[in-house]
Design a protein around this nucleic acid. Structure first.
Length: 531
RNA sequence: GGCCCCAUCGUCUAGCGGUUAGGACACGGCCCUUUCAAGGCCGCGACGCGGGUUCGAGUCCCGUUGGGGUCACCA
């Protein structure tokens, strides 16, 4: 492997907004490739048709390019090892799966989802580890052929070793040993003919001649499966390196999640962060920056500094908290580094760069103000930051029964949070992002089947979250103009501002929320279309 | 719960057997200043615990605790 040129990759799946974790891995992978004079590949892992989201792929391209993480080969620019979209490589996966089956290293499995669920349930009841019971592993060849010929649906599973242990070598951790008894016969080819991540990524990493797999820590538990797969296919295992997971700023430092932290790269762009600030901050995670002459670390640095000084081996393994305060501080430094001309250009681009958008804003403000001077007062939330107002987000409620006023306030805050979270999930799925589509989604949410809130109250909440105000141009038109990343970002901000003031809803409150929704649905069996 | 991974200030980190455990963010105070930033100075603040190894452990080993990840026909 040492004689091969270094090739790294990121393989995001187009299932939603481009994630900061993708940016983090992209940065590290790109730096490693560039340092070695190798190539950095972008591959789209779109093997899950159920979660596929139109527009997500373009958003990934835009987000990575905004950050300056340019790839050498990828779906939009091609390359010698393409195609770079897994949905266009189905034949390759099928071929390799067939090869494994023919060699007896994988097998056809005809078990239904239902049977698998039953097996799992029984195992749970017996407090055993839940795993596939390998019912189809020893099926006679004749029977397999017959059932296949009869058109019975099946998947391909990898025949894992059942005894001994599998050792994978992690660049940062050394050997990681897993008892084979804990591994299961992982599905390689799904019933729909698409490969699972395991098959697709191993086949692609080999064919694309990836030398270093640098990915998030959450993949460690899959690494032994990949090792077995690589071996079964007769492929050399690339260098494996699992990076620490970005964490939320909560007590337990859980894996970064959108409820607790803005996770969309686009959020940061729309909030007016500088790409070099983002990159710098991401570079701090697990690394800390290049050394100064006196041995201390330089915290404010650029991509060039990182290219010169970064060493994968220096990565710390503790999960770093994605701390917005620190990000702002780093970003501020980069902003101050801008010349007067550069800053002005950035401000213009941020505020007025999009002529179409600006016109749409102007059209909404035009007849609603009396002088030109009134423009900014009404349009501020379109152009810049919104200060979240928990007082507007949480409806005033009178105490009921035994409730103290404090109890009532707490309950109202929990309800607002939970409703807002449902709204965020629902709006996340709105495509395309138009006033009409948003209004439809909004009206649907304001039904007993969904939030159970009146549209008047629900829209007030939405308006407060998205604009920070009580009086604005028409809500859904404004949201269309504002755009999806900003609206969803602000919904998330609103969630966090409620939580900051009143705390996050307790588990009990969540359960109550779900129970009430269920009850409302039973009371209102109609409106299936809304479900 | 099984398996795996991790562990220095609240946070990002330095430390690679001998340090008053260093820097940065945040926080508090003071200075500068018409205001606000920026900047300067000071303060607050950490090696989870218990055993070893060693003349000597934040640093090495073991255990424990805590946290995280993962247990899908999702990636």
């Amino acid at each position: 492997m040492a004689d091969r040129p270094v090739r790294t990759r990121i393989a995001p799946s187009p299932t939603g907004d481009p994630h900061v974790g993708t940016a983090y891995m992209g940065l590290v992978n790109m730096v490693v490739a560039r340092q070695a004079g190798g190539q950095f590949v972008l591959r789209i892992d779109d093997t899950d048709r159920a979660r596929y989201r139109a527009g997500s792929e373009d958003a990934i391209f835009a987000a990575l390019r905004w950050l300056g993480l340019e790839w050498d080969e990828g779906p939009d620019k091609g390359g010698p090892r393409g195609p770079y979209r897994q949905s266009e490589r189905s034949a390759l996966y099928r071929e390799h799966a067939d090869r494994l089956v023919a060699a007896g290293k994988a097998y056809r499995c005809f078990c239904s989802e239902q049977r698998l669920a039953e097996v799992r349930k029984a195992q749970e009841a017996r407090k055993e580890t839940t795993r596939y019971d390998r019912a189809c592993r020893e099926l006679p060849a004749g029977e397999v052929a017959a059932r296949l010929a009869a058109g019975e649906p099946s998947v391909v599973r990898l025949a894992m070793p059942t005894t001994g242990e599998t050792v994978v070598h992690d660049l940062l951790r050394g050997p990681i040993t897993t008892p084979n008894a804990d591994l299961q016969d992982q599905v390689l080819l799904k019933q729909d003919g698409f490969p699972t991540y395991h098959l697709a990524s191993c086949v692609d990493d080999h064919l694309m001649e990836i030398t270093h797999i640098i990915r998030a820590e959450e993949w460690i538990s899959s690494a032994p499966i990949h090792k077995v797969l690589f071996d079964a296919l007769g492929f050399e295992v690339p260098v494996l390196c699992h990076m620490p997971l970005l964490r939320n700023d909560d007590k337990n430092k859980t894996k970064i999640s959108k409820r607790k932290n803005p996770t969309s790269i686009l959020y940061y762009r729309e909030a007016g962060y500088l790409p070099q600030g983002m990159l710098n901050f991401l570079g701090l995670m697990g690394w800390g920056g290049p050394r100064e002459a006196d041995g201390t670390q330089k915290e404010v640095f650029g991509l060039g500094d990182m290219l010169a000084a970064f060493k994968l081996e220096d990565i710390r393994l503790g999960g770093p908290v994605f701390d917005l305060d620190k990000l702002k501080y780093i970003n501020a430094h980069h902003q101050r580094l801008l010349s007067s001309d550069e800053y002005l250009a950035q401000v213009k681009a941020y505020l007025f760069g999009d002529e179409r958008r600006l016109r749409a804003v102007a059209d909404l403000v035009h007849k609603r103000t009396e002088t030109l001077g009134g423009f900014l007062g009404m349009a501020d939330f379109f152009l810049g930051d919104v200060v979240q107002r928990p007082d507007l987000l949480v409806p005033a409620r009178k105490p009921e029964g035994e409730q103290t006023p404090a109890d009532a306030a707490k309950a109202a805050a929990e309800e607002a949070w939970l409703v807002l979270a449902d709204v965020l999930d629902a709006l996340d799925k709105v495509e395309p992002w138009t006033a009409a589509g948003l209004e439809e989604a909004g009206r649907t949410l304001a039904t007993p089947r969904e939030t159970g809130w009146k549209s008047r109250d629900l829209f007030a909440l939405l308006r407060a979250a998205v604009t920070g105000k009580t009086a604005t141009p028409p809500l859904f038109e404004s949201m269309e103009v504002l755009g999806k990343p900003r609206c969803l970002g602000r919904l998330g901000d609103a969630l966090r501002s409620i939580a900051a003031q009143h705390g996050e809803p307790s588990k009990k409150a969540r359960e109550r929320h779900e129970k009430r929704k269920k009850e409302r649905r039973q009371a209102d069996p109609g409106g299936e279309a809304a479900a």
